[in-house]
């Protein structure tokens, strides 16, 4: 549905997007993840035909965005970072105007406007001026606007930015509902969003793609070892030596100490569940077991390890990010 090949965009000497390639299949939700200034917005603007690429090409719904921009745009809905609302129009007037310029034929217009109003639940705001809307409603009207011509492809630039938690959940649900009939690209710098809504993730940093995979695979790929956090009340004795002798334990690092209470991070080999042995050892040694929990390598850490320059290899990153 969307095919991006070797896309590069330079502003003068600055390279905003550098040789980016990826594909999105029909009906899929692709998460576009990266820190601020990574080139997410630029890539989306190229896909929507807002600006041309310096090199490379992008095909949206079967049309090259540069050679056949009108055909591509007719099949693309776009929600920019700031919803493009006209402050002086009411929501209804606004949606009718957008329907017109998006090429929705006269007879269908009314029905399409009503359909998106219902879908994005903005019915009670339809006669209000866009300038008087709250942030959450502005975002929803922006979403309604992008759906009005029932596009094959939806490109959403940070659709949940600035919303309250309830609205965020609603928006995510809405995006998931949409995925069946539409192909969605969604950009964000919030990681849980990706693991909750997207089937596939493109991680981009400094204009380059650093990883393309499913959220689960990414977690598995980088989680070379497992880490368990353990907090004990050991009194005078030093548990780290005893803990190190348990089968499967690779490393024991003391992370915090408050008087008697000591926290450790115990690293074990992949596929070796040492929690039972750890608990038994602590109890039989007569120490107080205060806390024991697995520290899963979160998407957050993967993201950090992939986008931080100091890390030299993803394999090493798995081990070094234990205190993230």
């Amino acid at each position: 549905m969307i095919e991006v090949q070797h896309l590069t965009k330079r502003y003068g000497r600055v390279t905003a997007v550098d040789d980016v390639s990826f594909r999105v299949e029909r009906g899929e939700i692709l998460g576009f993840l990266g820190p601020n200034g990574a080139g997410k917005t630029t890539t989306m603007r190229i896909l929507t035909g807002y600006m041309p690429a310096t090199e490379g090409k992008a095909i949206v719904a079967g049309f090259d965005v540069f050679d056949q921009p009108l055909d591509a745009k007719r099949r693309t809905g776009y929600l920019p970072e700031t919803p493009p609302l006209y402050p002086d129009m009411t929501v209804l007037e606004y949606l009718e105007f957008v329907a017109k310029i998006k090429g929705v034929a006269g007879p269908e217009r009314k029905q399409r406007v009503n359909a998106v109003i219902e879908r994005t639940r903005i019915g009670d705001m339809s006669s209000r001026l866009c300038s008087k809307l709250s942030k959450g409603y502005r975002q929803r009207v922006g979403l309604a606007q992008s759906l009005i011509h029932n596009p094959d492809v939806l490109i959403l630039d940070e659709p949940t930015a600035g919303l309250d938690p309830k609205q965020i959940i609603e928006t995510r649900e809405l995006v998931k509902e949409l995925a069946g009939d539409h192909t969605v690209i969604l950009s964000t710098h919030i990681l849980p969003e990706v693991s909750q809504t997207c089937q596939r993730v493109v991680i981009i940093n400094k204009g380059r793609v650093v990883a393309v995979d499913t959220p689960d695979n990414l977690t598995a790929r980088l989680g070379g070892s497992q880490t368990i956090y353990l907090q004990v009340d050991a009194g005078e004795s030093d548990p780290s030596v005893v803990l190190g002798t348990i089968a499967g334990v690779m490393r024991v690092v003391e992370t915090d100490r408050h008087e008697e209470r000591v926290g450790y991070e115990v690293e074990s080999e992949q596929g070796h569940d040492i929690r039972r042995d750890l608990a038994r050892t602590v109890v039989t040694s007569g120490w107080g077991l205060l806390e024991l929990r697995p520290m899963r390598l979160s998407l957050e850490e993967i993201f950090l390890s992939l986008t931080t320059e100091e890390t030299d290899a993803p394999a090493a990153a798995g081990g070094e990010t234990a205190n993230g």
């Binding site: 745009k73 402050p87 998006k102």
Partner: peptide, 14 residues
């Protein structure tokens, strides 16, 4: 200023 230019330029109009 308001960003609506993005709406116009990404719509199927010349």
């Amino acid at each position: 200023r308001s960003g609506t230019i993005e709406l116009l330029l990404t719509s199927p109009i010349t």
